[in-house]
Every structure is written in structure tokens, then in C-alpha cells.
Amino acid sequence: MILYQLNCDRQHSFEAWFKDGATADRQLKRKTVECPSCGSVKVAKALMAPRVGKKGNSREIAPIEPPALPSAPVAAPAGKAAVVPAELRQALIEVRKQIEANCDYVGDKFAEEARKIHEGEAEVRGIYGEATEAEHEELLEDGIEVARVPWVPRGDA
């Protein structure tokens, strides 16, 4: 699985998982990838920084593998929100369980704690929490690797 940062023609930025790079390219060319903010299918890969090696004094964090996602995209009718298929919903529930089991919740201090970890001022570990759009963009601009995860509410689980 590979995670790409994508942009739509209306300047919305979002992330999406694909089986591999070829699958991503094929789905983007066929316009089967839809912007979750506006529904546009004019979507392209954004520039992304390559993942670089860790500092010599830091320890490796085991990556959380995303569960298999449904193979067929589900498009919403024009002007209506997409209905999350049961398979996708279950995959997102599983992602949430894995994150909660393996990472520390830092609440609205996410950006601050991510920066401390990146700068070696805090223990290297997986964290999750909330960040504003501006905080998220600043972290990315500073080369701090973060990702947004669609969070399925507990009441829906």
C-alpha cells in the first residue's frame, strides 16, 4: 500500500491509499478518485518529500499497516455526500483501533508534541490528536511527517 497527497482542481488537499503507484496513476487517469471536500474528479498527485533516513540517536517506530480497502470506488450522486460502504467503514474502524492501541493520544497538543519528537526534545513514539489546518501545513512545510486519518466516530463503530 502507498499513501499519496492529492490536490483537486479547486485547491483542496487530501490523502489517499492505493495498492501501488501504478494503481494510483490508473485511477487518477480514469478520474475515479473523488475529492472528499467538493466531489471534483479533477485530481492530481501533489509534490511530496521523500521519506529520509532516521537520525542515528532515534529508534524506529513500527509502521501501522492500513487494512485492505474496497477495490471499487464509490461515487456520490452530484450534490450529495458519499455513503461510506460497509467495507470501507470497517477498514476505518480497524485503523482507529490500531492507532489507539499503538500510539499516545496528545489531544490538541499534537502539533507541539510532533515538533518536539522531530527535534529530539521528546521520546520518539507514535502519537495522535488534533491539529488545525494551519498547524498541519506548518508541520509539513517543516519536513515533519504527519498524516490525517478519517476518524470513524465510536457511536458508528
Rank of each mutant, 00 (worst) to 15 (best):
G79P: 12
A147F: 00
D142K: 13
A16H: 06
L88R: 13
K109V: 06
V52N: 09
D142C: 02
A49I: 10
A134R: 05
L92W: 13
E15D: 02
E137S: 11
I2R: 10
E65N: 02
A86W: 02
N57D: 11
S71D: 15
E138D: 13
A62Q: 12
S58R: 15
A46Q: 14
P73F: 06
A16G: 04
A134V: 14
E141W: 02
N57Y: 11
S37F: 08
E135R: 09
V84P: 01
V33M: 06
A16N: 01
P150Y: 09
E121P: 03
V43P: 03
G39T: 10
I2M: 14
A82Q: 07
N102M: 07
P50V: 12
A101L: 07
A49F: 09
L69P: 03
L28T: 05
D20R: 00
K19I: 07
E135H: 05
K109D: 12
L28E: 01
A62H: 10
R59S: 03
E113H: 12
A68G: 05
G129R: 06
R10H: 10
G155Y: 04
A147D: 04
P70H: 03
E137R: 15
V43G: 08
R51L: 14
E123Q: 10
A78I: 15
E141L: 13
V84R: 13
E135N: 09
A78Y: 07
I144C: 03
K45V: 13
Y128H: 02
V152E: 01
A86G: 01
N102P: 00
G107M: 10
Q5H: 06
F14A: 01
D9F: 04
A72Y: 08
N7S: 06
P85R: 00
L3R: 11
V33H: 08
R30K: 15
W17L: 13
R26E: 08
G126Y: 03
A82W: 02
R154Q: 15
G21I: 05
S58H: 07
I64C: 04
V152L: 07
V52W: 12
E113Q: 10
I64G: 08
D20I: 13
K97I: 09
S71F: 03
H136T: 12
I99L: 10
R51P: 03
I99S: 07
C38Q: 08
D9C: 10
E121Y: 00
A22R: 14
E112Q: 14
E141D: 15
